[in-house]
Amino acid sequence: MESVEYSPNTPLEYQSETGRLNILGFWIFLGAEIALFSTLFATYLVLVGRTAGGPGPEELFEISGVLIETFLLLTSSFTCGLAIHYMRNHSLKGVFLWIGVTLALGLGFLGFEIYEFVHYIHEGAALTTSAYWSGFFVLVGTHGAHVTMGIAWISLILIQLKQRGLTPDTTRKVFISSLYWHFLDVVWIFIFTAVYLYGMVM
C-alpha cells in the first residue's frame, strides 16, 4: 500500500498515511487545548481582584523574573524551529543540537517558574489563599505542567531518534512535538499579557 512515490520536496513526516493523519489529528487536538486554556483564562479573569483581603498580584509580581521566563520560552520556540529546519535538511546532528538547546531552555523556564511559585507561597499567596490565587496557580500551573510533559515527551523522542535515525515515523513525532512546543509558547504570550502585565498595572 505504501508504494506511493513521493516528491523529494515532501518532508519525511508527510511521507506516510499515518504521518499525515496524525499531524492533522494533532492540530485538532490543539484546537481542544485552546478551548481548555480559554476556559482557564476566563476563570482567571473573572476571579481577578477576589483576593479576600490577602496579597494581590501588584504586590508580588516582579517584572525581572517574568521577563527571564518569557525570554527563555520564546527563544526555545525559535530553537525548536531550527531543529525542524535541520530535520528537513536530514541533519540528525542539527536536530539533536537544537532540540537539546530547546529542552535546556525549557528546563530553565521551569526552574524560574518553580522558584517564582515558591517565592509567592513564602509571601503568603498559595492555592488556598483566595480565589484569585487559585485561579493564578491553576492557570499558570497548567501551562507549567504542559511544559513539563513536553520536556519528558521530547526526551523520549530523542531516545527514539538515537535508536532509529530520521525516518517517516520519528520525524512525525519530532514534528508533532514541535507543534506542541510552539503552542505552549503562544499560550505563554497570553499568560504574560493577561496575567503578569495586567496584574502589574491593576
Binding site: 476571579l47 477576589r50 479576600a52 488556598t128 487559585s134 496557580f137
Partner: peptide, 21 residues
C-alpha cells in the same frame, strides 16, 4: 478539575468564602 481542586486541595474557585464564585 477546578471543583476537584476545591474539594481535595482547598482552592477557592466555587467556595462561599475567600472570594470564590
Amino acid at each position: 478539575a477546578l471543583m476537584t481542586f476545591d474539594r481535595l486541595f482547598g482552592s477557592h474557585f466555587f467556595t462561599m468564602m475567600d472570594g470564590g464564585m
